[in-house]
Design a protein around this nucleic acid. Structure first.
Lengths: 220, 220
DNA sequence: TAGATTGTTAATCGATTAACAATC
DNA sequence: TAGATTGTTAATCGATTAACAATC
């Protein structure tokens, strides 16, 4: 087992770009029906993602996966090492703030547990929703965020509420002691430096698409 | 995932990273209440995004914005130039496939028109939904994608349907002649090389958060 | 003017790719 | 063995940052 203690290189922080690559490898290698046999070569993966095979081997080295000349890498071993390197094998709890359509859609996703995430509570301001459930999760009033999140040891807040209340909700989540916020609202949150924010701003996608529509379409 | 290669370098293509920066500038510069006066300096913007001010000035140069020594850049001019460079001032039409919660949540967003996007149709397989509307848009049967999209000259498909039907829907959209697909499903789509795909895979966010939760929390 | 800020070139840094020996 | 593939170092490329003259 390749522990973090085992290789000094593992102490190095995995950069954003590398994280994305690992996630792509993971998604691809765990896709059913794509592979037969348990061996996969760096060039095969590289071809799939239209990248250089050296990059793949370096990535494998970073997370301590050893390959076999003439065979490649053991798929199951790569999957396991990515899970370990990214911490997908450790469990943590999240709370969703905003039991609207977006919150509902996000909770519908079935794959969270395989990423270690468990949704422990949902919050909403609408009194009519209180006490009911969403995807099997009880809906609590927003004012109870601090109390409930502390009791349930929630460490991630998922913001799916309207922009107007996003900052206020974030403040409560921070007060409750969450480490990170996954922000699906269009607000630019202001949080203490020790709280990590991942934004899923729709506007970045809109920009890329608009640009492609008007610049790229002609030559493609 | 599905790379969109084969770009016949049409002049000065704006790279992905730069597009993101422009979008951030745009979002920040158009935020009400953040600015007074119409001048903004590169260092002010750089500070806001914790980046180097030289980068900001180079970006401004790329889209043809001239600054003024001791004053900075004219905010309105920057905004206008970004709109032009990214094509936000040109209109195009999109169709949403999947009138579920996710589709509804995405359609709720009010800002599309300021990015040039107009949602012209919604599709769903559920016969009970046909003829009804979602965010003021009529819902058509999925089997009519090709017909309706051609009539309405739709050039972007937004996939918010379940993973099982995502590929089939994408095929129909391609057949209808869309240039690009905005994929909110978890499927890796296979499309012709001339069709641009932007994935909003939830798993990349999950990976980054899982990693932060287990590695980053201590030292950040 | 004096000085803050732009615009641009040069230097640095990091990431990607090429090359090739080691390996099974 | 022969040869495909790994593992790693060197070379290249691009992106970021530093430096500074030009400017108003």
């Amino acid at each position: 087992m390749a522990q973090s203690k085992g290789n000094k290189a593992a102490g190095k922080k995995i950069k954003h770009a590398a994280l994305e690559r690992f996630m792509h490898y993971y998604h691809c290698l765990t896709s059913p029906g794509l592979w037969d046999g348990d061996w996969v070569t760096s060039s095969r993966i590289a071809y799939y993602f239209n990248m250089d095979d050296t990059q793949v081997r370096k990535d494998m080295a970073q997370i301590g996966v050893k390959g076999m000349p003439r065979q490649g890498f053991k798929r199951s071993e790569v999957i396991e090492s990515i899970r370990h390197a990214l911490g997908l094998d450790k469990r943590y709890k999240a709370a969703v703030v905003g039991a609207g359509r977006l919150g509902g859609a996000i909770m519908e996703y079935r794959g969270y547990s395989s990423y270690g995430l468990e949704i422990a509570a949902v919050f909403d301001v609408d009194p009519a929703k209180l006490g009911t459930t969403m995807s099997g999760c009880r809906i609590y009033p927003t004012v109870d965020i601090v109390k409930v999140c502390r009791i349930k040891t929630v460490s991630l807040g998922i913001l799916t509420c309207p922009a107007e209340v996003a900052q206020r909700s974030a403040d409560l989540l921070v007060q409750a002691g969450v480490y990170a916020i996954w922000n699906f609202s269009t607000t630019n949150l202001i949080v203490p430096g020790n709280v990590f924010v991942r934004n899923e701003h729709i506007s970045v996608g809109l920009a890329e698409l608009a640009y492609f529509m008007n610049r790229g379409s002609g030559s493609y």
